[in-house]
Design a protein around this nucleic acid. Structure first.
Lengths: 152, 152
DNA sequence: ACTTTCTTTTGACGGCGTCAAAAGAAATGG
DNA sequence: CCATTTCTTTTGACGCCGTCAAAAGAAAGT
């Protein structure tokens, strides 16, 4: 009866009042395995166990999970949407400008909205989203070794 | 009446080594007039003086200006790209979750990258992008008066 | 088991942006 | 002043990503 730990898909779904289906369990498992996955990556992972699953179903499930508060969608500029299960801890992201890889960054202050703008221009503030941009270690290595390296 | 501080489209283009064409001058004028404009808005503004201008030309010009450092492109999640002339002052934005309106927010610390993540996961950090989300005053007013309101 | 409700499949569609080829306009050199 | 090179703009097609909508299928309530 305690609120569940990260990776019990069935409990997460039940608590959210969503039906427990194979697709949803598989999508949650995929996100637990590969955070910051897009529809394609989730599709690939789900297809290994449920090969008939449609792309639209992946979209549906990810949208449902997001609305239910189980998943969170991020959308770095110039990239398709990505999903992760870490929710409600107000963390941020660092995105590689070369390959688009994403890593988590713990919030600087620890609680939302974590920043206060100097002037709000009459807006009611809901949240502050911080995206760091940089170059990941893999891309740094690829740049340092121009040729001959085993790249992925 | 204008001080040199205001953007002079022709000077900006010359300094960047770009040819001075009607389209480019018109796009810069449009952005000076309406910051945070998308391709559609710029197109509408430019069409008033250069009605034959193609949408692709707007894309080209905006991309050229961005690469030249004259304009900056922002891309709030779920919205098409927006452009502004304010460049290099490391300011941020607040976006209305209802209507997508964007306002500028001066940087909290005043200089890039303005924030340092606690853990960089091996990334070389380039910049920190902060997007505030909230509800603009117009949408707040619209919500307060559910029916019979005059034109927005 | 029957009916209602929710989920998934299937196919089409739309926004937004890019690519590429051809036509047009500005700078350069004779 | 004309010819050449270079850059800009037009035109049309295409692709990615996501949404919409209708029909088929599976789960829950009585």
């Amino acid at each position: 009866m305690h609120t569940s730990h990260a990776a019990d898909p069935i409990a997460l779904l039940r608590e959210a009042g969503l039906r427990v289906t194979d697709s949803r369990v598989a999508v949650i498992a995929a996100l637990a395995d590969l955070p910051h996955s897009g529809v394609d990556a989730v599709m690939g992972a789900v297809s290994r166990t449920l090969p008939q699953t449609s792309r639209q179903a992946i979209h549906n499930v990810l949208t449902d999970l997001t609305h239910a508060g189980i998943a969170r969608r991020i959308e770095p500029a110039g990239h398709p949407g990505l999903y992760e299960l870490r929710v409600g801890d107000n963390h941020h992201h660092i995105v590689c400008q070369r390959c688009g890889a994403v890593a988590d960054v713990d919030c600087v202050t620890g609680h939302a909205p974590c920043l206060t703008p100097s002037t709000t221009s009459g807006f009611d503030l809901t949240e502050a989203e911080v995206t760091f941009w940089g170059v990941c270690s893999a891309c740094k290595a690829a740049q340092a070794e121009p040729a001959g390296a085993s790249a992925s």
